[in-house]
Amino acid sequence: MEQQLKRLSFSGLGLGLLMLAVPDDAFAMHIMEGFLPPLWALAWWVLFLPCLWYGLVRLRQIVQQDSHQKVLLALCGAFIFVLSALKIPSVTGSCSHPTGVGLAVILFGPGVVATLGAIVLLFQALLLAHGGLTTLGANGMSMAVIGPVAGYLVWRLARKSGLRSDVAVFLCAMTADLMTYFVTSLQLGAAFPDPQSGAAGAMAKFMGIFCLTQIPVAIAEGLLTVLIYDQLTKRQLITARGI
């Protein structure tokens, strides 16, 4: 079992490293370095740090309970890294991309995703010029905290409602993806209010921009997450369950 997980993890990491060699413009959903005003960047960091601390505590608890979970955690981290690095052109010079957090949310809950997401965002900022260090707190809150929590709530609700596991997985991954962009729109709208319609108007404009490409991306991510979850279950690398 562990060998199979290692092969899957190394395959994902290998694909991610291969992507580093492919030049690409650094337009992306992640708010880029220096884009947010200093006070907003600091405020999001202050909010993100307690979530990151809790994620580290959960990560330690999971590993202490079962050391074999390390490889599965690595697989989830690789899945987040690869999917969130797949940038799809959107409008106004921005890009859409999947987030990949749904799988980790389902297997380990939303707490640990804060740590996995922070690691992914740090590497992408340093190696891909995708996001930034000053904006990592804001990006972390949207992609690694609020998005995963929303996906987790949908997952729990779907399982309690008696929906099939594949439907619940799809809804979880899609919701986490869409919520990430919803929060990013709120972050940008609050930091850069529209001169006429204010922050609310700016938020609505950002949402309209991202929705053009993000809805199909979220659907595709949901389907891919279902395939990965199904394969892990069939290979008995995980047990289908509602966490």
Rank of each mutant, 00 (worst) to 15 (best):
M1C: 09
Q4A: 14
L5H: 04
G12I: 00
L13Q: 14
L15T: 04
L18T: 09
M19W: 11
L20Y: 02
P23A: 01
M29H: 05
M32K: 08
M32A: 09
M32I: 14
E33Y: 02
P37G: 07
P37N: 03
W40I: 15
V46H: 11
L47A: 15
F48N: 10
L49R: 06
L52D: 01
W53Q: 14
Y54L: 03
G55L: 07
R58E: 05
I62D: 07
S67E: 15
K70V: 00
K70P: 04
L75S: 02
A78H: 03
F79V: 09
F81Y: 04
V82S: 03
L83R: 00
A85D: 00
K87W: 09
I88E: 00
T92D: 01
T92F: 13
S94C: 10
G100D: 08
F108M: 02
F108W: 00
P110F: 13
V112R: 07
V112H: 10
V113F: 00
V113D: 00
V120L: 08
L122M: 09
Q124H: 09
A125W: 00
A125N: 01
L126A: 12
L127W: 11
L128M: 14
G132W: 04
L133M: 09
G140T: 04
I146A: 06
V154N: 01
R156A: 05
K160E: 05
L163E: 13
R164L: 12
S165D: 08
S165V: 11
V169S: 06
A173T: 05
M174L: 14
T175W: 00
M179G: 09
S185K: 02
L188A: 07
G189S: 11
A190K: 10
P195E: 12
Q196F: 10
S197C: 14
S197Y: 09
G198K: 10
A199T: 13
A200H: 13
A202H: 05
M203E: 15
M203T: 09
M203C: 15
G208T: 12
I209Y: 14
C211E: 04
T213E: 02
A218F: 00
I219F: 00
A220C: 13
L227G: 06
I228K: 12
Y229K: 01
Y229R: 02
D230Q: 13
Q231M: 14
L237Q: 14
I238Y: 01
T239A: 12
R241I: 12
